[in-house]
């Protein structure tokens, strides 16, 4: 499994932040999931996407979401070709391996749901034609949690489509120094050597399902989920789909270490990124504070549920 290690190392050449974030990104990729980064601007979200795409020899697009972005701006549209008197489908920016949907909460619910449909079905339907998305396909969406005005926050049901919600956080002092050293990190990222082909990524994704999960660990996942349904302060607990995805994410996380079996540590590490955006908390707060609160509550759940040895 050297290639996964190589992938992580490759990304880290340009992304100087928390290595755990890189692992989570790779986890989401392997689990065929999508990533939601909810953090302040300017901490390397795009850089991460570019580095990942280059490393797996894939196409990368960045779409800045605005409130006048239409679904067709995203998916593409059929254009009349007068010479042949036919409509030709002109694919939109979503037809890339890695798509960075920047500030997804800026656009209208209509466009949001067009994106989310594409995420779920891995295909796009425009004007009666169905067009498959490239494989591997992964959306890295970002939400800006501070600016709240004039936004359309993703509803809870839509948030459920993202496998992981990741916070990048500010870099440490040393890392920040490294960032501002003067190299153009974007240039570096664009020139990164690929370490995996899309086909290899696809075969790795296929392997995730065969990662062994012990019965006790399934029990632990269920215990976590039912604890979220019981916990005070949570209005809506994790759905069975949530626990199913937690299992899958744990398998992928185990695979990033090259293991063929899931450990309790995998689940515990991955639980917060998988679960925090799947619960609805009773608090009236919003924005970063709300995210922080749900983090705290999920951490409390993790602290309460006994873990199998």
């Amino acid at each position: 499994m050297n290639n996964i290690d190589a992938l992580i190392a490759n990304i880290r050449k340009v992304f100087v932040g928390d290595p755990e974030v890189v692992r989570l990104v790779v986890t989401a990729l392997l689990a065929r999931g999508h990533l939601l980064i909810e953090d302040v601007p300017g901490i390397g979200k795009t850089l991460l996407g570019v580095a990942l795409a280059r490393s797996i020899e894939s196409s990368f697009r960045r779409i800045q979401f605005t409130n006048d972005l239409l679904p067709s701006d995203l998916l593409g549209m059929s254009i009349f070709n007068p010479r042949e008197s036919t409509f030709t489908f002109k694919p939109g920016p979503i037809f890339s391996h890695i798509v960075l949907a920047d500030e997804i909460n800026r656009t209208t619910p209509k466009t949001q749901s067009a994106l989310l449909e594409a995420m779920n079905d891995l295909q796009v339907t425009v004007d009666g034609g169905t067009y498959p998305l490239p494989v591997p396909f992964m959306i890295i969406a970002t939400q800006n949690p501070i600016e709240y005005h004039g936004t359309f926050p993703l509803p809870e049901a839509q948030l459920d489509r993202f496998l992981l919600r990741v916070k990048i956080g500010y870099p440490s002092a040393d890392n920040e120094k490294e960032i501002i050293r003067g190299r153009d990190l974007y240039q570096l990222a664009a020139r990164l050597e690929p370490v995996l082909t899309p086909a290899e990524v696809n075969s790795l994704q296929d392997r995730v399902d065969s990662i062994r999960v012990d019965d006790a660990l399934l029990g632990y996942i269920v215990a976590l989920a039912s604890e979220t349904r019981r916990t005070k302060g949570i209005k809506l607990g994790v759905s069975p789909r949530g626990s199913l995805l937690l299992r899958r994410a744990a398998q992928a996380h185990a695979l990033t270490f090259g293991r063929d079996h899931v450990l309790p540590d995998d689940i515990k590490r991955i639980a917060a990124p998988v679960l925090t955006h799947r619960i609805v908390i009773e608090s009236q707060s919003f924005g970063l504070l709300r995210i922080h609160e749900s983090d705290t509550i999920v951490q409390g759940v993790l602290d309460r549920v006994p873990i199998p040895l």
């Binding site: 515990k268 602290d303 549920v305 006994p306 873990i307 040895l309």
Partner: peptide
């Protein structure tokens, strides 16, 4: 105890190093 690790944990617990139920073996 199920296996040796649990035995060790029990013994360490008696010495005074108690594992929190939410801590994994590696943690």
């Amino acid at each position: 105890p199920d296996d040796f690790y649990e035995t060790v944990l029990n013994r360490l617990g008696r010495v005074g190093f108690v594992r929190k139920p939410s801590h994994t073996a590696a943690e």
